[in-house]
C-alpha cells in the first residue's frame, strides 16, 4: 500500500496557485494562492501561506494570512498567528489569543445552508 494518502494536496512554499482550486481530499497550504479554494474535507493553512481567495472547506485550521471570505461547514480553528480579512461563516469556531479577524462572523448555520 502507498505510504501516504494520495488524495492529499500540498501547496508548499515556493509554489503559487492561481484560479479555481478544488479538491476532494485534504488540503495543506503553505504557499501562495489566489482565486478560490474549495475542499470537501479538511483544510490547513500554514503560517507561511498567503491566500487571496474565497475559501470553502468542511473543517479548517488557519495559521496564516487569508484575504477573502471563509466558509467552513463544521469546525474552524484560528491559531494565534492567523490573520483573516473577510467574512467568516462557520458552525463552530475556536479563536486563539492573538488571532486577527477583520470582517463579519456568522454562526447561524449559513455555512451549511449554502451547501444545501
Amino acid at each position: 500500500m502507498p505510504s501516504t494518502n494520495t488524495q492529499e494536496t500540498i501547496i508548499a512554499q515556493g509554489v503559487k496557485v492561481e484560479g479555481d482550486f478544488r479538491s476532494d481530499g485534504d488540503v495543506v497550504i503553505d504557499g501562495e494562492v489566489s482565486g478560490t479554494v474549495e475542499t470537501e474535507k479538511f483544510l490547513r493553512i500554514g503560517e507561511t501561506a498567503r491566500i487571496k481567495a474565497d475559501v470553502k472547506a468542511k473543517s479548517a485550521v488557519i495559521a496564516g494570512e487569508v484575504q477573502g471570505n471563509v466558509t467552513v461547514h463544521e469546525m474552524l480553528e484560528l491559531l494565534a498567528t492567523s490573520r483573516v480579512k473577510g467574512d467568516v461563516a462557520t458552525a463552530r469556531i475556536s479563536v486563539a489569543a492573538g488571532a486577527q479577524v477583520n470582517g463579519r462572523l456568522s454562526m447561524d448555520g449559513s455555512a451549511n445552508s449554502e451547501e444545501e
Partner: peptide
C-alpha cells in the same frame, strides 16, 4: 481550472503514476 507556477529559481517537477508513494490504481 487553475495554474501552478514555481516562485523559486530552483525547482524540479515530477509526475508519478507508479511509485513507492503513489497508487497506480486510483
Amino acid at each position: 481550472q487553475f495554474r501552478i507556477t514555481s516562485t523559486s529559481r530552483r525547482a524540479a517537477l515530477e509526475i508519478r503514476n507508479l511509485a513507492d508513494v503513489a497508487d497506480p490504481c486510483d
